[in-house]
């Protein structure tokens, strides 16, 4: 079998070899662009973290030694973890339903998922700023239902950030999970129930384990995206609940402290790349991507 396919591959490939461009010439414009405006700026930014104000690791010592900055790191990790768990808890049943529901229904859900994903990020964040404000419709509804007496503070804190981020991240977990569940053979679950498994047993011991690689890949992607998110935390979180990306922007824009700003950027970069490396190692390149 493998022998036959490799011979046929040889047969097909042999006459072609002469026609193939052997150089990476056509890739040059992209390569030059990325080298000049991606690699070079990022590397020189990172160099500033160890060179400014004087050579050494003093920026990192300050960053990791101060309680204020550690709280920002902690905030960032906690919010990202919470957003990931919530997106997964909501996303799994939705992806599952989408994978099996009649096509005319799932088409509507898909259209709404895509609409939400494609709607401008600021427009979506603005919607939540309005919905969650003290006199907003969420507080009003809760008060009318008699669930609360005083309006809750839902913006300018991490509650608002979490709600806004889950809203943005949900499609990123639902779509890949849908693909994974779609590929599971329904016969396996039929077999489980024929062998006497209850529905809960089939869920926990068959469906969830089979979907687990997709869940892990989606969750990791959402977690990493959340770690570096700037717009939504900045608008819904307010200044007292800063997250890492805002800290970087603040160092550079308001404080003009390039040493500290690039040190914080480097921490974010290392964590992000480490998590992506982990994902590549665990699941290969197929799950990579997303905006």
């Amino acid at each position: 079998m493998s022998n036959a396919s490799s011979t046929s591959a040889l047969v097909v490939r042999a006459p072609r070899r002469n026609l193939l461009p052997k150089t990476l010439g056509p890739a040059m414009p992209a390569l030059i662009l990325l080298f000049l405006f991606f690699v070079l700026p990022v590397v020189s930014l990172l160099l500033r973290s160890v060179l400014e104000p004087e050579p050494g690791l003093s920026n990192y010592a300050t960053l990791l030694g101060s309680e204020t900055y550690l709280r920002i790191f902690l905030n960032t990790f906690l919010v990202s973890a919470l957003v990931t768990v919530l997106s997964l808890l909501i996303g799994f049943p939705v992806a599952w339903t989408l994978a099996i529901m009649p096509a005319h229904w799932s088409r509507i859900v898909f259209a709404i998922l895509l609409l939400s994903m494609w709607t401008n990020l600021l427009a979506r964040t603005y919607a939540w700023m309005v919905l969650l404000q003290r006199t907003g419709i969420v507080n009003k509804t809760l008060m009318n239902l008699g669930l609360i007496d005083q309006p809750l503070t839902l913006v300018n804190n991490l509650v608002g950030v979490t709600i806004g981020m889950v809203y943005i991240m949900l499609p990123f977990i639902i779509l890949p999970l849908y693909g994974v569940i779609r590929r599971i053979d329904p016969a396996i679950l039929q077999a489980a129930s024929l062998c006497g498994a209850t529905r809960w047993q089939s869920l926990w011991r068959v469906l969830v384990p089979l979907a687990a690689p997709g869940m892990a890949a989606g969750a990791l992607m959402v977690f990493v995206m959340s770690l570096g998110y700037f717009v939504t935390p900045a608008l819904l979180g307010g200044t007292s609940n800063m997250m890492l990306a805002e800290l970087i922007a603040q160092f550079v824009q308001s404080l003009v402290n390039w040493g500290m700003g690039s040190a914080a950027a480097f921490v974010l970069l290392v964590v992000t790349l480490a998590l992506y490396a982990l994902q590549l190692k665990l699941f290969g390149t197929s799950q990579m991507g997303g905006r």
Partner: peptide, 21 residues
């Protein structure tokens, strides 16, 4: 992999780097 890296890099890092540049 290099061509796809800008997609996974946190945008704020790229923004600060390009701003400086």
């Amino acid at each position: 992999a290099l061509f796809l890296t800008p997609m996974i890099l946190p945008v704020v890092v790229l923004a600060v780097a390009l701003y400086a540049f």
